[in-house]
């Protein structure tokens, strides 16, 4: 969603862990936004090179694709911090407070578990590409461990932010599912 609504974000209270994780996620968000802007610039450069100069465009398409992938993965923790990942909160809304609290802890724990699994295999995949020296099969031939690095980094930071969210709910610093009492 765009603009103008007040952006809700994870509450951190006076907890140093939560503040630190929040800062890391925000930094990741800046990185992600920068990558998207870079993708805009490079694409425009590519059109200029091809349409105006009628030259070859060797590396641009690939670079832009990897930038958008990295922007997505590295942006994950920041969007989690901004409560930007859409969910269906119909049932949590209907539940009484204590049940909602435990459901939130359950869903956060499972979320952390699945992202942890993906982080693990993502890191393994990255390491595999690094060790074997894989390159993309294009003229540019980028070393694939570079774009693949966004997998462990993005998923790892998302895992960290989710853990912070869990801590905040357990310590009652933030509300379960961010829902106010009706």
């Amino acid at each position: 969603m765009t603009g103008h609504q007040t952006v809700t974000q994870a509450r951190v209270g006076n907890n140093y862990f939560l503040k630190a994780v929040g800062a890391i996620s925000t930094l990741a968000g800046w990185t992600s936004a920068t990558m998207i802007v870079l993708a805009v610039a490079i694409t425009c450069q590519m059109i200029f090179v091809r349409f105006v100069l009628n030259h070859s465009t060797i590396w641009q398409t690939e670079m832009v694709v990897y930038l958008v992938i990295a922007a997505t993965l590295i942006g994950l923790p920041y969007v989690q911090r901004l409560r930007g990942h859409v969910n269906v909160d119909l049932i949590p809304l209907m539940l009484p407070r204590p049940v909602r609290f435990y459901l939130c802890i359950l869903t956060l724990t499972i979320s952390i578990a699945i992202i942890a699994v993906m982080f693990w295999y993502g890191a393994e995949f990255w390491h595999f590409a690094y060790e074997r020296g894989w390159k993309s099969d294009t003229v540019w031939g980028v070393r694939l461990w570079i774009p693949y690095l966004s997998l462990p980094v993005g998923l790892g930071l998302l895992m960290l932010q989710l853990t912070a969210d869990l801590v905040a709910v357990v310590l009652k610093i933030d509300l379960p599912f961010g829902l106010e009492d009706s």
Partner: peptide
């Protein structure tokens, strides 16, 4: 920020 949030 808003574009990044929605795109991601």
């Amino acid at each position: 920020r808003d574009s990044t949030r929605e795109s991601v």
